[in-house]
Computed example of a mutant assay.
Amino acid sequence: MEALHFEYDAPFTLESGATLPRLTIAYHTYGQLAPSRDNVIWVCHALTANSEVADWWPHTVEQGRFLDPSRHFIVCANILGSHYGTTGPLHTNPATGRPYYGTFPNFTIRDMVRAHRLLADALGIGGIAALIGSSVGGFQAVEWAVEEPSRIERLALIATAAKASPWCIAIDETQRMAIEADPTFGQPRDDAGRAGIAAARAIGLLTYRGGSGYNRTQQDPDGTTLPHRASTYQRYQGEKLCRRYNAYSYHAILNAFDTHDVGRGRGGVEAALARIKARTLVVGITTDLVFTPAEMHWLADRIPGSRYGEIVSEFGHDGFLVEHEQLNALLYPFVNN
């Protein structure tokens, strides 16, 4: 399914003060917008995902699921800086006629959300019946719900946070260190930093899956000699990301994620969360090491009228990608009632 593209042919000023001369946003839609325009579900994607939700979130964009194209008009837009069509480091800098690469200006979660608000306006979407974000997609969703509380009717926040924690920032910095240790990173070419991004991905996976996930899926058969299954899995996953993503986008987006703080300039996180008017469901995962159940309970307790749901999984943070039956049991009634 080919992505659609929205062209914003005017300067787009970032929170840093830098300006992109123009902005392209890649996006996908599923289903039909109702004449009353009241059936929109907007999905905010995470780190290296794209706008094609059915591609990366199994068993969600199906009839009878919470992203049901026969009932809803589902929109997912690719984030600023990404490898998948929205303006980012591999796009041409009009000032030089060459790709930005490492010179792409710094941007934030708020910049991502402002870009998507432009797209929503262009699509004629006033109200959003349900805004759904998981992981760093949840960063975007909670920021949007704070910034435009009257636009969002329902809000689902899955394995996420209202502010990047020191633990999350440390994970991101460790991945950036791996990328920066690759001597090719910084060179003006699309494939720069390949070894670095492979190592970064392997580091990230440790936090996404955790010990329980690895111990369940990567056990060696009896009599196995080197290399271990877990070793080959890490190398395979690193190489897999290299084939579909670039180090400049990965590095830039990690930087953007660390800027996430809904309380910045709004009197703190709790004051910002109190602005949310949407009916909210916060979903934690029992074994998540990145956004623990305790942190998810804290988030739910500070959003007015929200409720908490939990996925039981051995797959850590990645449980939201794996436990689709549990996720649907929580989200289907939430978006349809």
Rank of each mutant, 00 (worst) to 15 (best):
Q219V: 14
S231C: 09
G213Q: 01
T174Q: 12
F257P: 00
G238I: 02
N215M: 09
F185E: 01
D220V: 05
G196L: 04
P183D: 07
Y233F: 15
A181Y: 10
Y208I: 04
G196R: 02
T232N: 10
N246Y: 03
P166K: 05
Q237I: 10
P183H: 06
I171E: 01
C242I: 04
A195T: 11
A198C: 06
L206A: 10
H251Y: 15
R176N: 08
T184V: 13
S212C: 11
G186A: 07
H228R: 14
Q234P: 00
E180F: 06
E173Q: 15
Y250V: 02
R201H: 08
Q175N: 08
G186V: 03
G238D: 03
R194P: 01
I203D: 00
D222L: 14
R229E: 07
P221W: 10
R229S: 06
D172H: 15
A181K: 12
R189H: 12
G213M: 00
Q187Y: 07
L241C: 03
D172A: 15
N255D: 15
T184W: 09
D172S: 15
A181M: 12
H228Q: 12
T174K: 04
A252R: 07
A200H: 02
T224G: 06
A178M: 09
R209C: 04
T225Y: 11
Y233D: 14
G213V: 01
T225A: 14
I171F: 04
E173D: 13
A198M: 06
P188G: 08
A252C: 13
N215R: 15
G204I: 00
R235M: 09
Y208K: 01
G204V: 00
R176Y: 06
Q234W: 06
T217P: 00
W167H: 13
Y208W: 10
R243T: 09
L205N: 02
L241W: 02
G238E: 02
A230Y: 14
W167D: 02
I179M: 15
D191K: 13
K240F: 09
G210K: 00
T217S: 09
S165N: 08
